[in-house]
Amino acid sequence: MLVVDSIEVFYGEFQALFGVSIEVAEGETVAIIGANGAGKTTLLRTIAGVLRPRSGQVRYRGMRIDGRPAYAVTRLGVAMVPEGRKIFPSLSVRENLLIGRQSRRKGPWSLERVFDLFPVLRERADFPGIDLSGGQQQMLAIGRALMSNPDLILMDEISLGLAPVIVRELYETVQEITRAGTTVVIVEQDVTRSLQVADRVYCLLEGEVSLSGRPADVSREQISLAYFGV
């Protein structure tokens, strides 16, 4: 479904990704792990069309999408739950969710269905989105992405800064989302948590893929080496 083919990505003169290749099949949940600054967010932002690779390709369902603007990629069915949640501050909870409709895609997700998935959002629908707690904001960011009726959803560190019970709850909904057939790419520093839900895992180290495989097939030592480089 998604093929990232040896992309090199730069911020000005600084190279953040070196020939990174990953593949994601329809219906899979793929985890991308790696330490601070490894390039995980850069990889997601390149897939989503925010950044352009200097070389290499990103293909989605056989179409090249590198070089297309982010809004066009979203309209093809690739949604992002961005790092830091990025709730629109001047929009209410409901309005933040309704923004998801800008993808102009038809599908199963509606305001009501997102409210059923995260009932707390229904209770606070008319509050400003940024008045929610961190965990609720993360639910809102996931709900907003679902509202675009994506086929592929990219999630960037949804557990960051949240209490373990909330993280567990969020991961349960991630599994609900994957069960419904949506393909998920999940970026995490929380290795244990992400390996529990992933069908396959890639590890990034200083801008390169240092390990890939099925969670069952890779040992703790291999992961630790690929993650820290030592």
């Binding site: 989503a48 069309g49 925010v50 603007p69 982010a70 809004y71 066009a72 979203t74 309209r75 949604a79 992002m80 961005p82 990025k86 629109f88 923004i99 998801g100 800008q102 993808s103 102009r104 907003r144 675009s148």
Partner: peptide, 9 residues
């Protein structure tokens, strides 16, 4: 930037 990620041109 986030607006573009939501499908807004």
């Amino acid at each position: 930037t986030t607006a573009e990620l939501m499908g807004i041109d």
